[in-house]
Design a binder for these strands. Structure first.
Lengths: 190, 190
DNA sequence: AAACTGACTAAATGAACAAAATGGTCAAAT
DNA sequence: ATTTGACCATTTTGTTCATTTAGTCAGTTT
């Protein structure tokens, strides 16, 4: 029992949140899973929500890292933003915890989960915004409101990847890249 | 009592759906409001959902008409689509019944309401799609998948008008037109 | 002494049951 | 031929009460 108790708790909580979601995870369960007295959890975290927050912060970092890994400075701004957004949403589609969280938000509307999802969205937008600002700086694209543009790019990708599938056949990754280029890069004008 | 009973029922139901939503409207209430026996309703409509459907179909027609009124054949495709989408969403924002329906969908997720909202969305997309096809035909814009484009244009407007407001100051109508032009017409390329 | 624990408490949840309300029907009334 | 509202099966709502849960803290362990 000499190992890092905080990490044990985080690991246990991550596993439980991933498996059962926020609401259905009890602190007793986390304590048992972590081989720790329940009181111990409260020496590291003020409450359940703060424990949750720490774990989601890690998820956000992982997403950012996953996005960063597909960025290639050799490639164009558009290619890179496409890769980053696609990677982030793919991550969201595959990562246990992310899946459970979005499901819980949809099906139960747990407030703590809503908050955390808002935080996640804000982080993604901030990340893309920063890429946009760099591209404007470098003169790679024409000046625009980076915040709104990042916001719309995310909306576009969520629409193409998640919403479109609700009523149509899923779109190929290349098709999405093509649409992204068509609308954001070239425009429909002749 | 010689007046059109069907219309009395529709009027009463419209009023009640607008005021209380779908779930909270009872058939007894509609009958009473319409000064009609409950059984009479069932001589005109198979059930509650069909009555609801008829009323929503009227709402959809009204929206289409509202959009059609701001279309000006003299103007460009983009100006017209902007006017139409903005008008439709403004309508949705102000119309009693539309407000109640979207609120009920958000807060209770009533299945009949979800269905009807999907139907409404489909109608808007079909309307825009048709405008896009005409514009491609006339050579006003470059060829593209009209269905996906209409879908994305609606998503863009909903994002700008409804979603953006959740975390930021609302955008001016002109600002939205400008963004629409920037992304869909010109693109960000230099 | 510092770290840890789990029995304990107040509050939240949900299971179980009863009562009320609701959508839809149909025999009787008009 | 229409219209109606009492009636029925089912769902929804209100209520009670036992269980569960987040968080605490006196006591135990290291």
């Amino acid at each position: 029992m000499a190992v890092n108790r905080k990490q044990q708790i985080i690991d246990a909580a991550t596993k439980s949140f991933s498996l059962f979601g926020y609401k259905a995870t009890t602190m007793d369960q986390v304590a048992k899973l972590a081989n720790v007295g329940k009181g111990t959890i409260y020496t590291f975290f003020k409450n359940k929500e703060e424990l949750f927050d720490e774990i989601v912060s890690t998820l956000i970092s992982e997403m950012k890292e996953a996005a960063e890994q597909v960025i290639d400075p050799q490639l164009s701004f558009f290619e890179n933003v496409h890769r980053a957004l696609y990677r982030i949403l793919e991550f969201r589609k595959q990562h246990q915890l992310a899946i459970k969280l979005f499901q819980e938000e949809r099906e139960m509307g747990t407030p703590a989960v809503q908050e955390v999802i808002k935080k996640l969205e804000t982080a993604i937008i901030a990340y893309i915004k920063q890429k946009i600002e760099a591209a404007i700086e470098k003169g790679e694209i024409r000046p625009c409101d980076a915040e709104i543009t990042a916001f719309l790019m995310l909306k576009l990708y969520v629409a193409l990847i998640f919403d479109w599938e609700k009523n149509h056949e899923p779109l190929e990754k290349e098709k999405i890249a093509e649409l992204f280029e068509l609308y954001f890069l070239k425009g429909l004008s002749k």
